[in-house]
Every structure is written in C-alpha cells, then in structure tokens.
Amino acid sequence: MQDSLQAADIAHKMSAKDFSRLSDFIYNSYGIRMPVEKKLMLQSRLQRRLRALNMTSFGEYVDYVFGKNGHEELVLMMDQVSTNKTDFFREAHHFDFLVDTILPELTGGSSYKKSLKVWSAGCSSGEEAYTLAMVMESYMEQNSSFDYHIHGTDISTKVLQVAVDAVYKEEKVEVIPLALKKRFLLRSKDPLKKTVRIVPELRAKASFARLNLMDASYDVPNSFDIIFCRNVLIYFDKKTQESVINKLVSKLKRGGYFFLGHSESIMAMNVPLRQVKPTIFVKI
C-alpha cells in the first residue's frame, strides 16, 4: 500500500512538457510510438528509475536523462519502457512450417554441412531463440547433419540478461512438448525455486546482443538464412515498419525466409519479399 501511495505521488508530477520531451525522444530514437494515451503507462514504468535515483519529480529525471551524464540512464530507461512479452512456441504454426518446409529445403539432405544462421530480432528474454534451437536440434538429430546458430537481439539489456542466463519459471515452460522438456531443460537443484534452465549444449547455439532497430545500420552478421521479427513492428508506425523491414531483409540471403507476427503485415510496402504463407515471406 505504501509503495502504491509513493508511486501515485511521483506519477502525478509528470508534466505535459516532461512527457512530450520523453515521448518525442523515444519515438525519434527508438521508433516506439508514445501518444498521450500512454502517459500513465510511461509514468508507471519510470517510477522505479526515479526511486532508484532518489528523485522526487519527473522534471528532475528528464533533465538528468538529457544531461551530459545521462547516456547510461537512457539504456536503463529503455529497459523499463520497452514491452517484452513472449512465450515458448508462440505462434506454433511458424515452427511447424520451419520443420516441414524450410529445414528440408535449406539443408538439402544428409550431405549438407554448412551452418544455418537464424536471427531472432526483438528476442526479448530468449524464449523464441531457444524454441528455434530446440526445433532445429531435434530436426538435425532425426534427419540430416548440419550446424546452426541463433542470434538474438533486443533493445532491453534487462531481458537480454535473462536470455543469456536461460533460467525460466516452471509455468513458462509448460507449453513445451514433454519430449523436448526432457531433452533440453534442467530442473533447479533447489526444489523451492521451481525454475528450469536450458541445457548447456543448446545455450551454446545462441548468442545475444543489444540492438536498436532504429539504428541506420545493424551491426550483425550478413547472410542470415532465416529472420524472425514477430510482434515487434506493431509498436512502430507504417513508415518506420517499412524502413526496419528493409534493413532487416538486407541481412537476409536471397531465398531466405522472413517471419512476422500474426497482427503484422507488409501490405502496401516496398520491400523485397514474397508471401508464401500468412506472415511468412521469402526474399526475392
């Protein structure tokens, strides 16, 4: 109750000017739309940063963020502002298509020895990246021999650390098929923790790094075979979506596959993609 009162006391002090400065910066630097309807959300998410810095007003916080020593705080601020919702096997039909169509096509039988490169853009806390690794590892064991690597990027350092640690609550992994749980998850030695961790050999197949999709260019490897960028672009306006998709696809091989989330579309966009299934595209 006391924390709620403190939060309310801080929240009401965000002026229209402070909100405008923050929302304009967030949109221009990170592409995330922050209309006035999201003022309460922004206030709520940043209250923790004010308390951590022993500040009592948003005006003081905004001045600090945009001051000469505010660079590190910008990273911590975006950890609070960015939305990071994800799950294992989210939109499962995408992984079915990966197994049934893409992997047989790209690996080309047992003689395939190259390494497939997959990018999970907007990977959040790693569930998508490790789902991809589970699916690809299982396919590799039962079909052709090939290597692969998953590269995950996100704007939030907080969720990226979760991905690196690869420790998840038991309820988060309930959706994972039992055979994959037995193969790829380790229970905590402390039964009170009720957590699991991704096995080391799977963790070794994934790497994670911070990346802002609004950057002019992306410091990631070229020639990915597959890119997943799902439920990320919904926070951008149409013009920004088109720009981001073109930058992402510039890192994709011709004939490589690109995945969007169920509510996202490339309709009326000038992008080098051809739809093969709803929300699944190939680079042309």
Results as ranks from 00 to 15, higher is better:
Leu178Thr: 15
Glu201Pro: 09
Ala206His: 08
Asn222Gln: 12
Ala206Tyr: 06
Tyr218Leu: 11
Lys181Asp: 08
Asp215Thr: 05
Leu180Gly: 04
Arg203Trp: 04
Asn222Asp: 15
Leu185Phe: 07
Lys194Val: 03
Asn222Phe: 10
Ala179Phe: 03
Arg183Phe: 00
Asp190Cys: 09
Leu186Gln: 14
Val199Met: 12
Pro191Tyr: 04
Arg203Gly: 09
Arg203Gln: 15
Ser207Trp: 00
Ala206Gln: 07
Lys189Gln: 11
Leu185Gly: 02
Lys189Ser: 14
Asn222Leu: 12
Leu185Thr: 03
Arg197Pro: 03
Leu185His: 06
Asp190Tyr: 06
Arg187Asn: 10
Lys205Ala: 15
Lys205Ser: 15
Phe184Gln: 06
Arg183Glu: 10
Lys182Asn: 14
Leu192Gln: 11
Pro191Ala: 07
Leu192Asp: 09
Arg187Trp: 01
Asn212Lys: 03
Lys194Trp: 00
Leu180Cys: 01
Pro191Ser: 07
Pro177His: 04
Leu185Met: 07
Pro221Asp: 10
Arg187Ser: 14
Ser223Tyr: 10
Ser207Gly: 13
Phe184Val: 10
Ala204Met: 13
Arg210Ile: 10
Pro221Arg: 02
Lys194Pro: 04
Arg187Thr: 06
Asp190Ala: 07
Arg210Thr: 11
Lys182Gly: 13
Ser207Met: 08
Phe184Thr: 06
Lys189Thr: 10
Ser223Trp: 01
Pro221Met: 07
Asp219Ile: 13
Leu202Asn: 02
Leu185Cys: 05
Lys189Tyr: 03
Lys182His: 06
Lys193Leu: 14
Val220Met: 13
Val199Asp: 06
Pro177Asn: 05
Ser188His: 00
Ser188Arg: 00
Pro191Val: 12
Pro177Met: 09
Val196Arg: 09
Lys205Glu: 12
Ser223Met: 10
Val196Cys: 11
Leu180Pro: 05
Lys189Gly: 14
Val220Leu: 15
Ser223Gln: 14
Leu192Cys: 01
Ser217Lys: 07
Lys182Thr: 04
Asp190Glu: 07
Lys194His: 14
Met214Phe: 09
Phe184Ile: 08
Ala204Ile: 05
Pro200Gln: 10
Arg203Asn: 11
Arg183Val: 00
Pro200Cys: 09
Ile176Asp: 01
Ile198Cys: 09
Arg183Thr: 03
Lys194Leu: 11
Thr195Ile: 02
Glu201Cys: 04
Leu186His: 06
Ala206Met: 08
Ala206Phe: 03
Asn212Ala: 03
Leu213Arg: 07
Arg210Met: 12
Met214Ile: 02
Lys194Tyr: 02
Lys182Met: 09
Ile176Tyr: 01
Leu185Lys: 05
Arg197Asp: 01
Val196Gln: 05
Ala204Val: 08
Arg187Ile: 00
Ser188Thr: 03
Lys189Asp: 14
Phe184Cys: 11
Leu185Gln: 10
Glu201Val: 04
Val196Ala: 08
Leu186Cys: 09
Phe208Leu: 01
Ala179Leu: 03
Leu178Val: 14
Leu186Pro: 00
